[in-house]
């Protein structure tokens, strides 16, 4: 188990390092002056001078990378081109809102999707299963940004049930909740279908295993067989999937944040792309990647810990 943990952790670190390298190289491989590319055309001469000095642009490229690397390691992600605020502060301010949106979306999706998948798998080919199947495919097929736009149109503009934009008044909890409903609905909807199908498929696969037939032959109750035998095995790939699929979820939050003008990392990156403020983009993408890698790591470790075969063999 320990060696697996170390291996997996090592891999995560390597991935983040690669992301770091890629973000650095992206800037330097494009023909032209890296400083101008990074800061865009509207940057002030002071900002350009500051950036050039900080990144040691006149030194050899490996030295520049080393400087960048040590800065990131010490928590310094650079500075905003226009306001000169610390990128670390800007990203950390935006991060909680995005994480809350992602977590709430995933939570409600799992709360509905996993039981739907279980119930479908218990009675395959029943009307309930067929209905769930069609709805799942439909929710997966509709792109989440379209769900955002359409739900904005229907619930906020036409019916005026829910607020249109923003994250709500920071002091007012219920106002914040009401601002969270539509984005969370839009981001999570596809995941309801995705999880339902995933759980159903792995449940059906497990229900066909010899040991389920053996459990029936030993006269175990159907309830025990479904929930304490089949689900216990079938949930493992689902957990891995949730971990890996977090990438998709983060993409979903980008659109939801932009469409509902809700502050967050996605909106931050988009705005900064529009303003050609590359240092902030660089820092925010790096943090997003790190968060993603961390969550995948956790999911893998949970699976390894739950499955005695994996637990022992590692």
């Amino acid at each position: 188990m320990w060696s697996y943990f170390c291996k997996r952790l090592g891999l995560s670190v390597v991935i983040v390092l690669c992301a770091l390298l890629a973000l650095f190289l992206l800037l330097h491989l494009i023909p032209g002056d890296p400083v101008k590319i990074a800061l865009g055309t509207r940057a002030t001469p002071e900002a350009i001078a500051r950036y050039a000095e900080k990144m040691h642009v006149h030194e050899p490229i490996y030295y520049q990378f080393w400087i960048y690397f040590t800065q990131v390691l010490s928590g310094d992600l650079g500075a905003d081109v226009f306001s000169n605020r610390s990128v670390t502060t800007i990203v950390l301010e935006a991060l909680p809102s995005t994480l809350i949106l992602a977590a709430v979306s995933l939570f409600w999706a799992a709360l509905i999707g996993i039981p739907l998948g279980c119930l479908s798998a218990v009675r395959p080919n029943s009307w309930f299963d067929r209905l769930t199947g069609v709805l799942s495919v439909a929710t997966i097929a509709i792109p989440s940004f379209l769900v955002s736009i359409w739900s904005l149109l229907v619930f906020a503009v036409m019916l005026k049930w829910l607020p249109v934009i923003g994250a709500g008044d920071p002091g007012d909890f219920w106002d914040q909740v009401s601002h969270l409903i539509l984005p969370a609905f839009a981001v999570g909807l596809g995941w309801v279908g995705y999880l339902a199908r995933m759980v159903r498929a792995s449940m059906l696969e497990v229900m066909n295993e010899n040991y389920i037939r053996a459990a029936r032959a030993f006269g175990l109750r159907e309830r025990t067989i479904v929930f304490r035998y089949a689900l216990k095995v079938a949930i493992l790939p689902t957990i891995t999937l949730i971990g890996i699929g977090f990438s998709g979820l983060l993409s979903g939050t980008v659109f939801a944040e932009i469409i509902f003008t809700r502050p967050g990392v996605g909106k931050l990156i988009y705005d900064m792309v529009m303003n050609r403020n590359f240092p902030v983009v660089q820092g925010a993408v790096l943090v997003t990647t790190a968060v993603y890698v961390l969550i995948t790591l956790c999911a893998d470790l949970v699976v390894a810990w739950l499955d005695p075969r994996v637990r022992d063999s590692l």
Partner: peptide
């Protein structure tokens, strides 16, 4: 494998945004 993992670890849209920012 490492190469694939790294690419998958970039959230697609976020990566696209970074590329568009530069290009």
């Amino acid at each position: 494998l490492l190469f694939f993992d790294v690419i998958r670890s970039f959230p697609t849209i976020v990566m696209a945004l970074a590329a568009v920012a530069l290009l």
